[in-house]
Amino acid sequence: MRMKLKEICERLDGDLSGDGNIEITGVSGIKEALPNQITFVANPKYLAAIATTQAGAIIIGRGVNGNGKPTICVENPYWAFVKVLEMFAWDKNHRALPGVHETAILGKNVKLGERVAIQAFAYIADNVEIGDDTVIQPFVYIGEGTKIGADGLIYPHVSIREEVTIGNRVIIHCGAVIGSDGFGFAPVSNRHHKIPQIGTVVIEDDVEIGANTTIDRATLAETLIKRGTKLDNLVQIAHNVVIGEDCCLAAQVGIAGSTTLGDRVNIAGHGGAAGHLTLGEDSVVYAKSAVTKDMPAGSHLSGFPARPHKQELRIHAATRRLPELLPEFAKLQKRVAELEAKIQEPEDED
């Protein structure tokens, strides 16, 4: 793909400086960029790299000197760079020739929208509905009665079980499993008896689900992933969980059953939450932390069990001083023992 710099500038609604007719064929970081690529500077620590980068053009913020290179000046260089990435990545990653590959298997009463692509060896069960412009890549399984919206992208080896509902513009990466049985067993006479999981999974618009992530179906109602939420690779969402809008869950996060996350909750890698609790909106859970009780909106949590982040930092600071404090504590113990011995000595007789 090739675009003139002035065309990119128009799409970004920025201010152009330099030759707008140069052709841009790709996007790269400021240190790796080649003369036919565009890059950006959003972090002040990379300003010095403007003088040495080979990039053909740079996206910069207000008040930044482009050092004589062609630039596009915008209010938010990082967001503008994301938009440029979309321009160059769309054809390569998302577009596919519409139609059903001869090796794909479609069940009865399957409804396909316009320009849908069903690629090799995909299996689409009975009564499935797939919206316009959605791409189903090879070796995908879609169970009976599932509904997938428009403009979606389902990567290879994704398994979507029966009666699942997926919204528009949803991206699901390789190996993800949507609608697997929730982990429910009833202990009777020292044995675990499976509880049928007859609920469903609902994934709203603009959600992205990472590779090998699993989202379990509810026992009775629905496991719900709300609009705009992004799940990283290897995330586990248990049955009956509700994830709010615009949440971000990093790799290896685990959310136990029947827990509710408010809108815009961020959980860092290897963090998680126990079951049957509520984590309020705009909360942040730091890496390797586990929430074990209800937490209000705006909480910043870390540790195990998770507690307010500033409190956890103070605990860690105190813990690091233990090697120094223990010898002092031993000395104090010895002095106390000596004082107690003196107090207990009998008085001299006259």
Rank of each mutant, 00 (worst) to 15 (best):
N212F: 12
T213Y: 05
T214P: 00
T214N: 09
I215F: 03
I215Q: 02
I215D: 07
I215H: 03
I215A: 06
D216R: 09
R217Y: 13
R217C: 08
A218E: 07
A218S: 15
A218M: 14
A218D: 02
T219P: 03
T219M: 14
T219Y: 06
L220C: 14
L220N: 13
L220F: 11
A221F: 10
A221W: 06
E222V: 08
E222P: 02
E222Y: 12
E222H: 13
E222D: 07
E222M: 12
T223Q: 13
T223P: 10
L224M: 07
L224H: 14
L224C: 11
I225S: 04
I225K: 05
K226R: 15
K226F: 13
K226C: 15
R227E: 14
R227I: 15
G228T: 08
K230D: 04
K230Y: 10
L231R: 00
L231H: 02
L231D: 03
L231F: 05
D232R: 04
N233K: 12
N233T: 10
N233W: 05
L234S: 11
L234K: 08
L234I: 10
L234W: 02
V235H: 01
V235P: 00
V235D: 03
Q236R: 08
Q236V: 08
Q236C: 14
I237P: 01
I237H: 01
I237E: 05
H239D: 01
H239Q: 08
H239E: 06
H239P: 02
H239A: 05
N240P: 02
N240W: 06
V241Y: 05
V242N: 03
V242Q: 11
I243V: 14
I243G: 01
G244K: 00
G244M: 00
E245V: 08
E245K: 11
D246N: 07
D246W: 01
D246E: 10
C247G: 14
C248W: 07
C248H: 14
L249D: 01
L249N: 01
L249G: 01
L249I: 01
L249F: 03
A250H: 01
A250N: 07
A250T: 02
A251R: 01
Q252E: 09
Q252H: 12
Q252D: 14
V253Y: 00
V253Q: 09
V253K: 04
G254F: 00
G254S: 15
G254T: 05
G254P: 01
G254E: 02
I255K: 04
I255Q: 04
I255N: 07
I255S: 13
